[in-house]
Design a protein around this nucleic acid. Sequence first.
DNA 1: CTATTAAGATAGTGACACTATCCCCTTGGG
DNA 2: CCCAAGGGGATAGTGTCACTATCTTAATAG
Lengths: 225, 225
Amino acid sequence: MRLSDLSTRSGVPTATIKYYLREGLLPAGDRVTASRSEYTEAHLRRLRLVRALVQVGGMSIAATKEVIRAAEDDTLDQHQRFGAAQEALFSGRPDAEERPEPGTAARAAVDELLAETGWGECVDQPLYWNLVDAVTALERLGHPCDITRLRPYAAAVAPLTEYEVDVLAGYPDEEQLEAMVALTVLNEPILLALRRIGHAEVSATRFGSSGTAGHPAGAGAPNVG
Amino acid sequence: MRLSDLSTRSGVPTATIKYYLREGLLPAGDRVTASRSEYTEAHLRRLRLVRALVQVGGMSIAATKEVIRAAEDDTLDQHQRFGAAQEALFSGRPDAEERPEPGTAARAAVDELLAETGWGECVDQPLYWNLVDAVTALERLGHPCDITRLRPYAAAVAPLTEYEVDVLAGYPDEEQLEAMVALTVLNEPILLALRRIGHAEVSATRFGSSGTAGHPAGAGAPNVG
DNA sequence: CTATTAAGATAGTGACACTATCCCCTTGGG
DNA sequence: CCCAAGGGGATAGTGTCACTATCTTAATAG
């Protein structure tokens, strides 16, 4: 398969594929002659993964590259690659400068929640700080987030993560890493979209639904009926 | 309060505040003299909201502006503003060109899920297409998403949305709009962070947790102890 | 031996979120 | 009055990001 074939079959412009090759998101093809390279189905598969992560998952090129590199690192064994890829999935997130002290209301609430859920191991990881940042932002806006406000989120997510790990365990070993990356990233928009759809629908049915209705109904689902 | 005070109390550089003023994210202050304007606590509050939406929530300036404009539109009543703001919250999402036909596996699965959950009203809205896009991407990568794969996500989210609408209903009327915006956007990172923490913790406890452990354990929670 | 296309390298593009600069006006003192 | 300091507003510039267009060289096609 030539580069142009990769482009045709994936729908990605050749210039973009060249860019991905340059950035190391896609391994080089077999250079048959000085002016022709041969690509395989594996390249196509990788290209589709990269595209999905970037376009649907909203990941940055840099973060995607980290994930790819971790997944391909031959000096690591399977679990190490797995962990490295998982770590790399968050590297695209912003890193705030302020790290609230352990005494803060935000940190107290988060720590309490994690302890209660049995997820205390993540303290000091980027994800933990994501959580603290979001809770801190809410508090600054006058929406205090104590544990009772937070608990429903953990309660919603806990069974889901069990399920997702089950799904992942159902893949053959050699597919697990790629599946983990794809499922971690691409299920995010599904979760978020369902949540917002839920908001619209729940508030519509809650506060009258016909015509000029209750609170967030009318325009919450416009152009529908 | 002068612009520089706004800057000091919010931590946002004056140049950035000026930018937000220009973009209409922040209403102009009372021009006391030709070279001095007076800002209020309301400006500070708005500024903090904008900052949180942009920095923590990852919203674009354009989308944020849409939300602000909707929330301030005096030609609309409260419910209309509510709906308009809710709509504007999604305007930042990408719009794909391909719209899969109703027969597609992705659309079939999504439609079935929404029908089952009782959320059939959202078809053809941006959110619906977000959902379809994500499911389509997963299928293209060889991860078919039939309704049994999707159902746990709806199941996780449905009670959460009920709870969140309850929380919102607890606010006084005049605060509901701003609260809805803040909670919709800023709870997203909380949900996502908890999900990923859950992945790490669940897989760690599932596949051995000490030292060089099972699948995603060891490096999934590194530098911990 | 030319013409067409391919691959690779280099530089440019447009969007985005700021940010630095310039200018004027006020404020305050002699 | 003048001059200097500093805030406020308008304008243009900066850095980043994800591409994208162009140019160069090379090899098949007739």
